[in-house]
Simulated assay, not measured.
Amino acid sequence: MTAPRRPIAELPLRVRYHECDGQGIVFNAHYLAYVDMCSFEAEKALFGSHDEFLAHGTDVVVAEANLKFRAPARYDDELVVSQYPNHLGTTSLIFDFEIRRGETLVAAATVRYVFIDPASLRPTPPPDAVRKVYAALLGD
């Protein structure tokens, strides 16, 4: 039996009225914003802050995002966004995200980030110190 995955970060949030569409449910684009907010919480947990991550001489950009909607979220729902490591490549990093309302899975996301050189904005392998942090999450 496989042990349950442990999240890198969890972000509790409450759905705000303006995030809902005319049908009274969270507008789809807001789920990516929730994922992005959680990714910064993970960065803080791993490196101390976004600035401390950038001090390593690297940054990341989103190259691909996939969302699967499972149940609607509505105004004033209390959600938790959880981030899990998935894959570390040569210049990319993949995370899985779950957005839950209690035990109900509301949405699942997979996001591929690419490490870039902040000056040229070109893909580049991450510095060894950064690679080690992410590799440790995956047991590599």
Rank of each mutant, 00 (worst) to 15 (best):
N28D: 14
A73V: 00
P7V: 00
P126D: 13
S49D: 01
T110E: 11
V114Y: 08
D77V: 07
A3H: 12
E19T: 03
V35W: 10
Y34H: 03
P12R: 06
A71H: 08
D76C: 03
A73T: 00
A135N: 11
H18F: 10
T110Q: 13
V106Y: 02
F53K: 07
E64P: 13
V130E: 01
N66E: 14
T58Y: 07
K132V: 12
D117F: 01
R16K: 15
T90N: 14
L46Y: 02
H30E: 08
P7H: 01
V26D: 05
L105G: 00
P118N: 05
T2F: 00
D128N: 08
L67T: 08
T91Q: 05
E43C: 15
V26E: 04
A136W: 09
G89W: 12
E41S: 07
L137P: 01
P7A: 03
Y84N: 06
A65Y: 07
A29S: 15
G48V: 10
F69Y: 15
L11V: 11
L137N: 04
A3V: 01
D36R: 14
Y31C: 02
S82K: 09
V111F: 05
N66L: 15
V111Y: 05
I116C: 00
D117T: 06
R122F: 03
T2M: 04
G24E: 01
F95V: 01
H50L: 14
S120H: 02
Y134P: 00
H50W: 15
H50Q: 12
P72D: 03
Q83C: 09
Y17Q: 11
Y134V: 09
D96I: 04
D21E: 11
P127F: 04
P7F: 02
G57I: 14
M37H: 14
V26R: 03
V15E: 00
E10I: 06
R70K: 14
Y34M: 00
S120P: 05
G89C: 03
L32Q: 15
K44S: 11
K132C: 12
Y84C: 05
R16D: 12
R16L: 11
I99W: 06
T58Q: 06
L32I: 15
G89R: 12
P85G: 07
